[in-house]
Amino acid sequence: MAAIDQAPAPPALRILRSTLWAGARLVSIALLLTAWELVARSGIVTPFQLPALSAVLERIWNDAASGDLAINTSVTLYRAMVGFFIAAVGGVVLGMAMSRSAAARWFFDPIISVGFPMPKIAFLPVVILWLGVFDISKITMIVFDAIFPVVAATVIAIQGVERELIWSARNMGAGQRELLWQIVLPAALPTIMTGLQVALPLSLIVAVVTEMLMGGYGLGGAMMTASRFANSTGVFAGIVEIAVVGYALVKAMALIRRRLLIWHQESQNFPSP
């Protein structure tokens, strides 16, 4: 994260400098939070428009104490993760099938290329019509949204495997099965992971929207209830809770990527972005 156009400095100075910059980053977050509290208390805005940070934290604390926070978080996470895993496995399998069979490619290629850029969320009322308002239709919506980036990434990844790599493996006696599991999939993994890293936040976005629309337990549902009762502290508490869950999921995924791709160039160049 270095800015362009800066002169190299001696090592000791560089370490000192980077520690200072890292400290400055923390200050920036602290500034944001302080500004929130000050603006909320100053009277420029009403507490309805922006409740004080302290009030929001208190609300979160109460949610946690009553157990609501744990229930809502786990319900939302459950839906998002089940949907994500189905999309991940289904997407990789479908992508592999499209790479290997001309018939599968002929049938699914137009569906994927037309379906990927579509706003699938518009189909939500149709899915409700078919499957009701419970978990099954929420998870269906998540899979429907998250599977496209996974399929597209898998197809591109497998196409991008160098023929020399495959030839080398065949040269050493690898058969079709071994080529797929030992060569093609590992070589395609970095790009497939990138697809999964797009699909994961998408799963969470859709989980929250479906909960907002269909109600019931879950972080999105709780936020919507608070909104209906004009309880803006509850709404802001919801944002903070959802932000924390989103942040944790994205960081966890990045960690998994680094672990799985320890051999990949990027993990050597950037130990911790």
Binding site: I29, G238, Y247
Partner: peptide, 16 residues
């Protein structure tokens, strides 16, 4: 911090 925030969570806030 805000990049991974599921953007749909902002809907009720913008309404407020």
């Amino acid at each position: 911090i805000f990049y991974p925030l599921p953007k749909s969570a902002l809907i009720p806030v913008t309404v407020i």
